[in-house]
């Protein structure tokens, strides 16, 4: 088998870190599978949300960050809406992505991460999203230079793509929030791992 579990009492730390970041208590998850049942992305996923939550419950960090599941989550929140235990599963997926990034983990499926980055970069640069620029950057970064290249001219013809980015006077305020949030998430990571460490009695 790919993973063996050797439990030593430390496994609860991963669940505690997720809780510290998201406020979500995964002890509530009884593994009913309703999230996987309703998830639109399961055909592309390796594990599905239910198993992802199980890996967190068992502290299987290595296995967790190997999964493509959190990166394929479309954020539709069907899982969150129907979870019998009111667990915000979509938020857990966000937090797993966030943790993987902060911990410098290798991401098993690169495209969604690249899209996230170029999207937010465009927003941070201009205050508003500049769609043509964002797509061009995406194609460069992903190496898929001709992705959706057929759509571009059609949309231009339809007048659906602006040629120049819009900017906003609040761009600076936005950047400030981005900077602060970045500092906070790093701090929260340190705090969370310290707390988890304390709570697990080490």
């Amino acid at each position: 088998m790919k993973y063996q579990i050797r439990l030593s009492g430390d496994e609860i730390r991963l669940m505690q870190e997720v809780k510290a970041r998201s406020g979500v208590d995964l002890a509530k998850c009884y593994q009913c599978g309703e999230c996987t049942a309703g998830c639109p992305m399961t055909p592309e996923m390796d594990a599905g949300p239910t198993k992802t939550l199980r890996l967190i419950q068992l502290g299987m960090e290595e296995a967790l960050f190997d999964l493509n599941t959190p990166w394929l989550c479309a954020s539709c929140e069907t899982c969150t809406a129907r979870c019998p235990n009111d667990i915000d599963i979509a938020l857990v997926m966000d937090v797993v992505r966030q943790m993987a990034r902060l911990k410098g983990k290798k991401i098993p499926v690169k495209e969604p991460r690249i899209f996230q980055d170029v999207f937010l970069k465009s927003v941070e640069n201009n205050g508003r999203l500049f769609e043509p620029g964002m797509i061009a950057f995406y194609n460069l970064r992903s190496g898929d230079l001709f992705h959706d290249v057929g759509l571009g001219p059609k949309m231009l013809l339809k007048g659906k793509l602006p040629l120049l980015p819009h900017t906003s006077k609040n761009r600076e305020k936005l950047r400030e929030i981005f900077r602060k949030a970045e500092a906070l998430e790093k701090e929260a990571g340190k705090k969370a791992s310290e707390e988890a460490h304390d709570e697990s009695g080490h």
Binding site: C32, G33, E34, T36, A37, C39, G48
Partner: peptide, 25 residues
């Protein structure tokens, strides 16, 4: 597993569930 949705499709009801033992939808 549990079932997330049931909807009608023509003569049938489509039941969308999961089997957590196999990990499959």
């Amino acid at each position: 597993g549990r079932v997330s949705r049931i909807y009608r499709s023509g003569d049938h009801l489509i039941v969308k569930g999961a089997d957590t033992l196999s990990g499959a939808a």
